[in-house]
Amino acid sequence: MIADIITLVWKEWKEIFLQKSNLRGGILSLAIFIGISGIFLPLQAGREWLSSPLGLFIWLWFSVFMVLSMVTDAFAGERERHTLETLLASRLSDQAILLGKIAASVIYGWGMSIASILLGAVTVNIAFREGGFAFYQTQVWLGGVVFSLLGCLLMSTLGVLVSLKAPTARAAYQKLSSILLVLFLVPTLGMNLVPEETQIKIMTYLATVNLAQVMGVAAIVLLVVDVGLFFAARSRFQREKLLLD
């Protein structure tokens, strides 16, 4: 099973990044992501970058987008290019195919996050040197690692779920982008609709809460949603439906 998952991860990466025609585009998008979140933003923020929770949102947002571009191709792209049926006719189990597709995109997005977390620390230490090597506050780096993993898992399982049903990779991408926009825009716009007095109350309350506790609760909620989405994708993964849809 593990070997099968690794094989699928190898295939996904090979297909997308290591071919000559895609190499330049792949390197460029990685360079932009790592350049912004690992060099440009830390330089702008200075040493505060190591203690500010802003990084959490940046790493989460970027890694989720990296996953989005990859995962929508998972099943819809294979169906579109007529490679899915041959894959389904192989000895691979349903679980291995599903987990392989999810793992490929999660490792990619999460790997990028970790790389930019580490690079951000190096950038700050080089540009704003004060004594020995300074690292992030525990809440920040741990939050970055955990939330980017859970965010990537969320986007990957959601992406697989959408991709299983979508006729083309483009359709899956559009649908998933819309879901993502709703997820991020609704709280932002909703906040604007709330009276100013209430907004101040909310912000005051947020300033007093224990950040570690909030992060813990948020992580548990995300994990539950991820697991739920994974099981939903697993129940929707039926070879017959995949061939006939």
Partner: peptide, 19 residues
């Protein structure tokens, strides 16, 4: 069955971006 059979189906099923 799939473990012990080989299949060339309606489409070649090749990954065209791969060598």
């Amino acid at each position: 069955i799939r473990q012990r059979c080989g299949a060339l189906l309606e489409h070649t099923g090749l990954y065209e971006r791969m060598t």
